[in-house]
């Protein structure tokens, strides 16, 4: 075995030149040094960095929000970290260096508040689950009952993330037992598989359908079982500069922030 690995290695590194054995690490070190220099000079030394942990479903809206905040406050450099809300909660509770947390529902935010990592969260937007169907797959699926059809490829978010726990509630109150094919770890992954036509139908946020730009058709849920989730934001206790963090939260909850969110389809 060890000989076979050696044979593989010698196929990669020139066999004829033993000096290559010594020069390769030196070249690698030089590359690493160069790369780190480049990084150092490009980072903004003067602007105050505010790290915002935001739910995956806020991705497009908060990318625009970042630009709006930085345009209004040139001294602030917003850095976004996007993931499922519950993944972000775990990172925050493990001491990740974040300044602001924007969660896709109030339950996840409550966990962070209960742990003493944040206080006085504010609801700043709402969103709703809708049925998304791939337009080319021609499934004719328009209602929740179609989620029981075994021949359809059906996906939801994993119950561990907000869009998945909301989906569980929707199915329960509608008395529907979905024939699931996958539980995706975040809503954007689910949406991508519906857009690609790998899945026929799924439950995603209304804003995701807008982001899909015509690739999926949306059908609203019946009012009786509809699920509205309320996004909430808070500055974190661990914020390096509490004033800057409060300023970012203030912008997100202001009328300017709301205007940005509305262009991406979020309710208020």
């Amino acid at each position: 075995m060890s000989r076979s690995i050696t044979a593989f290695g010698s196929a990669l590194v020139s066999r004829s030149n033993p000096r290559a054995l010594m020069t390769t690490p030196v070249v690698m070190l030089a590359l690493a040094t160069l790369a780190s220099c480049g990084n150092g000079s490009s980072s903004s030394a003067e602007r105050e960095v505010v790290t915002v942990f935001a739910a995956a479903s806020l991705g497009d809206a908060f990318t625009a929000m970042e630009e709006a905040i930085e345009a209004a406050n040139p001294a602030i450099d917003v850095q976004l970290s996007l993931a499922g809300s519950s993944a972000l909660r775990e990172q925050i509770l493990d001491g990740a260096p974040a300044d602001v947390f924007a969660s896709a529902n109030e339950t996840v935010m409550a966990d962070v508040v209960d742990a003493g990592a944040a206080s006085s969260p504010q609801v700043f937007a709402t969103n709703e689950l809708v049925i998304a169907a791939n337009v080319e797959n021609d499934v004719g699926a328009v209602g929740l009952a179609d989620f029981e059809r075994p021949e359809l490829f059906v996906g939801v978010c994993a119950p561990e993330v907000p869009c998945g726990s909301a989906a569980v509630e929707v199915f329960a109150s509608a008395g529907v037992t979905p024939q699931l094919d996958t539980e995706e770890p975040d809503v954007r992954r689910l949406l991508a598989k519906i857009i690609d036509g790998e899945l026929d139908v799924g439950l995603v946020y209304a804003t995701d359908v807008i982001a899909a730009d015509g690739a999926v058709a949306a059908f609203e849920l019946p009012v009786a079982v509809s699920s509205t989730n309320r996004y909430s934001v808070a500055a974190l206790e661990s914020a390096e500069d509490p004033d800057a963090a409060a300023l970012v939260v203030g912008f997100i909850t202001s009328s300017e922030g709301r205007a940005v969110l509305e262009t991406f389809g979020f309710g208020s």
């Binding site: 075995m1 000989r3 076979s4 690995i5 050696t6 044979a7 593989f8």
Partner: peptide, 10 residues
């Protein structure tokens, strides 16, 4: 594949 190919060559 890599492991077996290496062995075959040696």
């Amino acid at each position: 594949v890599i492991t077996v190919e290496g062995a075959l060559r040696n």
